[in-house]
């Protein structure tokens, strides 16, 4: 199991190492906990407030673990123009998958689009979103 210390050591030599560290911590543990923030702050000679300020600024970092699988549904203008708002009731009509809003996946010509892990799915309609959610 990777430790916070390992992750910090891997990036410590880089200029501005905090974001790469936070990304790796979140990848390894699913979130950035209070304890992790304290350890990172100590290792980088930052205050806990500084690290907390960074973690809380960026939408990607979560301070608490999320047990459910996550689907990020694009809610930006181009996907709105292609009807994503009609899919929201389907996303909200279930609770097994955590559905989060994301603002643009660069699929603006083939939306509505969603991101699951590193997998991008386009041309969503009600049926495709339903089966995607069921398969997760």
């Amino acid at each position: 199991m990777t430790s916070i210390a390992d992750i910090v050591a891997e990036h410590a030599h880089r200029e501005g190492p905090l974001l790469p560290i936070l990304h790796d911590v979140q990848k390894a543990f699913g979130h950035v906990s209070e304890d992790a923030m304290r350890d990172i702050a100590q290792a980088l000679n930052l205050t806990r407030a500084e690290v907390y300020g960074v973690v809380s600024f960026y939408h990607d970092f979560r301070k608490e673990a999320e047990a459910r699988p996550i689907l990020k549904l694009c809610r930006a203008e181009a996907c709105k123009a292609r009807g994503v708002d009609a899919l929201v009731p389907i996303a909200e009509g279930q609770s097994r998958v955590k559905v989060e809003a994301v603002y643009c996946l660069g699929m603006c010509s083939v939306g509505p689009a969603a991101l699951v892990g590193d997998q991008v799915i386009a041309r969503l309609d009600q049926a495709r979103l339903s089966s995607l959610l069921e398969a997760m």
């Binding site: 694009c74 203008e77 996907c79 603002y103 643009c104 660069g106 699929m107 603006c108």
Partner: peptide, 11 residues
Amino acid sequence: DEGDSGTFADR
């Protein structure tokens, strides 16, 4: 950091 909706040329 191509965040504008409607753009994808950078990508």
